[in-house]
Design a protein around this nucleic acid. Structure first.
Length: 591
RNA sequence: GUUUCUGUAGCUCAGCAGGAUAGAGCGUUCGCCUCCUAAGCGAAAGGCCGGCGGUUCGAAUCCGCCCAGGAACACCA
């Protein structure tokens, strides 16, 4: 079904045309003066010059054409040349009714369905998820869901960091600690043990130690580099040990991502494209793109229009080992060959932009990415603690995701328990759901590309623009619908909605909000902007709560009106549910 | 140093294919529960949209310069 705004545009454009003006001038937008009107059109002012006519006169001409319009209940030409528009009650209620009745609220399948690979998450194996992994997971998951809802084919890949220097570092540290392990015995011929020689917590302790030593101890760093190379070259014992690291870590990562309700279609890593690297590199050399510079194999990526000199992309390090660029290039090749995507999206820290410029240019230059495959860098900003400083624990370390989640959950639990007579287990479960909503909404309501301040106090508050506020609004609706059912009523969203529009301004506002749903999804997808979903759903919640306050729904004596209200509640609730699903969280029954 | 991002109310943030009196939330002040969950609703106060110029009938929005803060800048990922 057509977008609401398109219908308004058509009506207005036709009026411009009938009045003898360019129809392109008839673009309508939401009013920025809600006290004056609901929608507005400023085309008369843009057209004034071309027609050598006062904007106000043009506006009047157009307004005349719209007398008796079924779309606009009032069209007023005002001062310099604004057209102030109000929507007909019948028109909006019919439109909303049709929306509620159609699947996906009238959103049509895209004319050209795209296949989109989205690369987010990017955790390193052997490292626990910490707050730094929060943003890619949350933002990536939401973008994935939005794209899917918009009708595209989306493949989410976690893209594990399982092949670089960290692996060599872990091997090095393990060798220092337990040199007796068979994995280090080069003459060992038998089968390696099933059981991993470490637990996840040991692994998590080992990595930072190793990484720390590399920074201070040159000898140690050399060993780590050597071990990285040997692993990549296929040394048997190292490969077996690395498999163990992978096994233990991935199990732990999956568990943690599940808690965040983040799920990946693919659990691939850098290592999965290892086999593709040698032929890829050979081809790059053969085609004359790659050459040796300072011992490393590089591809020049500088372009004439660059304002700044860009360093070349290092395809193989001087010791011949692969690095981040190499695996990312091979991964593009893999994705092209296996998925032929229209776009590959990278949801990564914005500080990595240069790396991706290098990789993208190299991929294009060397024909690894097809010319029409869009490679997109979606950089997100840093998550800071209160005060704007990087988010750290009291002792200066990085906070584990698990602990952060727990902290928020406990906070929510206290809030929930102090209120109602919910049994403890339900309160616990509700706290979990609410905490995740608080966390995700707090993150997503900010523009992804900007740094933002992570403030648990603010995010868990039930007042204001927060996750809990939304959930509370939904719970209120559920409660009414449940009571209505208890009274023998039948809940459906297919009733006539005119009574809602006529009940009060807020009722009309709610339906006008709802009518903008498909436009919002469109924009959120096109701009990869989950925060637009937040803004939309928050406005809806606000308007709904006003309606809730003004209109006594269950106490309504006129059965027809009551039915109309219930239809709206039911429809609005599913809009809410859809929106929070796009954001990646759920709502509880009660709170 | 070069490049780049950011600068909007006390605080946290929207708005930026130019439009009327720049919007929210928190905080502050003041109202509203015999009535569907007050985790709510309503109202008030609070701004030279970092600064200076330019384009335009009109600039928070576009362009230039400056100031302030962050980030990136070849073998880490």
């Amino acid at each position: 079904m057509k977008k609401f705004i398109e219908l308004l545009n058509e009506e207005m454009m036709t009026a411009f045309e009938k009045a003898g003006y360019d129809r392109a001038l008839g673009r309508v937008g939401v009013s920025n003066r809600p006290d004056l009107c609901e929608y507005q059109c400023n085309g008369a002012m843009s057209g004034a010059k071309a027609y050598h006519k006062a904007p106000f006169m043009i506006a009047e001409d157009v307004a005349k054409q719209l007398e008796g319009s079924k779309v606009f209940s009032s069209v007023e030409a005002v001062k310099p040349g604004f057209l102030n528009l109000n929507i007909s009650e019948q028109f909006i209620s019919d439109y909303a009714k049709e929306m509620f009745a159609s699947g996906k609220f009238g959103i049509e399948d895209p004319k050209d369905q795209q296949t989109i690979v989205i690369d987010y998450g990017g955790p390193n194996v052997a490292k626990p998820l910490h707050v730094g992994h929060l943003r890619p997971a949350i933002i990536g998951e939401s973008i994935k869901r939005i794209a899917r809802y918009a009708g595209h084919k989306v493949i989410g890949d976690v893209h594990l960091g399982d092949w670089g220097m960290p692996m060599g570092q872990i091997i090095t540290e393990l060798k220092e600690r337990k040199p007796e392990l068979v994995y280090f015995d080069e003459s060992f011929e038998g089968d390696y043990p099933e059981e991993a020689p470490f637990t996840i917590s040991e692994l998590e302790e080992i990595y930072p130690v190793a990484s720390g030593k590399c920074k201070t101890d040159e000898e140690y760093k050399k060993k780590a580099l050597q071990n990285t190379k040997e692993l990549q070259d296929g040394r048997k014992g190292y490969r077996a040990l690395w498999q163990q690291v992978l096994k233990v870590s991935v199990a732990d990562l999956k568990r943690n991502y599940e808690k965040l309700e983040v799920s990946f279609d693919l659990w691939m890593g850098e290592s999965d494209v290892d086999d593709m690297i040698p032929p890829m590199v050979e081809k790059m050399k053969a085609d004359g793109f790659a050459h040796i510079s300072e011992g490393a194999l590089v591809v020049d990526i500088a372009e004439e229009t660059d304002k700044k000199e860009l360093p070349p992309c290092i395809v193989l390090k001087s010791d011949g080992a692969a690095n981040y660029e190499t695996t990312d290039l091979a991964t593009i090749k893999y994705r092209e060959e296996n998925f032929t995507p229209d776009a590959i999206l990278y949801v990564v820290d914005k500080r990595q932009e240069l790396h991706f410029v290098q990789v993208f240019r190299t991929a294009r230059k060397c024909g690894i990415a097809k010319p029409d495959t869009s490679l997109e860098f979606i950089g997100f900003g840093t998550m800071n603690g209160p005060g704007g400083k990087p988010f750290k624990t009291r002792d200066g370390g990085v906070l584990r995701l698990e602990y952060l989640l727990k902290e928020i959950e406990d906070k929510m639990f206290v809030k929930i328990s102090e209120n109602k007579d919910l049994p403890e287990d339900e309160a616990r479960a509700t706290a979990k759901i609410t905490a995740l909503a608080a966390l995700k909404y707090g993150d997503l309501s900010n523009q992804a590309s900007k740094d933002y301040i992570f403030d648990t106090e603010r995010f868990t508050a039930s007042e204001g623009d927060t996750g809990p506020y939304l959930l509370y609004t939904m719970v209120r609706i559920r409660s009414i619908l449940a009571k209505y059912r208890e009274q023998g009523g039948e809940v459906c969203s297919s009733g006539d909605l005119l009574a809602c529009v006529q009940a009060c301004d807020a009722g009309k506002a709610v339906l006008l909000d709802v009518a903008g749903f498909s436009k919002m999804v469109d924009e959120a997808f096109a701009e990869r902007a989950p925060h637009k979903v937040c803004a939309f759903v928050y406005k809806l919640a606000n308007d709904f709560n006003s309606f809730y306050h003004e209109v006594k729904i269950l106490a309504e004596e006129d059965e027809e009106k009551k039915k109309s209200y219930i239809s709206m509640l039911s429809g609005v609730l599913s809009v809410f549910e859809t929106c929070i699903d796009l954001l990646g969280f759920k709502s509880p029954e009660r709170m």
